[in-house]
């Protein structure tokens, strides 16, 4: 399975990663992807987004343009070719 993963906003600046193609032998959920990215790409990824098994408020993950908050959160299954976009929105004015 191949996923298109993109980071935006302050997360992009913190991780110093913009986009990557992630390949997996088997199926993944959002949580499993975040774990894998922490192992393979940057160890900070998972802890920046998840705490106590729940997504931290302000974690935004779009799967093909749809917010995971309105899907199955961390249990949302991912499919081959999915675009996964991860960011914390800025709230200052």
């Amino acid at each position: 399975m191949r996923l298109h993963v993109e980071f935006y906003s302050t997360l992009r600046l913190d991780l110093k990663i913009k986009k990557l193609e992630y390949e997996s032998d088997g199926k993944l959920t959002v949580e499993q992807l975040l774990h894998r990215l922490s192992l393979d790409v940057n160890p900070a990824i998972y802890d920046k987004l998840v705490k106590g098994g729940q997504p931290i408020k302000g974690t935004n993950i779009l799967i093909n343009g749809k917010s995971f908050w309105h899907l199955n959160l961390l249990d949302t299954p991912l499919h081959n070719g999915d675009k996964v976009q991860i960011f914390p929105p800025a709230a200052g004015g």
Binding site: T10, L13, G58
Partner: peptide, 25 residues
């Protein structure tokens, strides 16, 4: 919204921000 060097702009016509975004504390 802005934060340091970054920001974002989004226009909504029917939905609300909570349909799209979760903001940090």
């Amino acid at each position: 919204g802005v934060n340091g060097y970054v920001g974002q702009i989004l226009t909504l016509k029917k939905k609300t921000l909570s349909d799209v975004l979760s903001f940090p504390e």
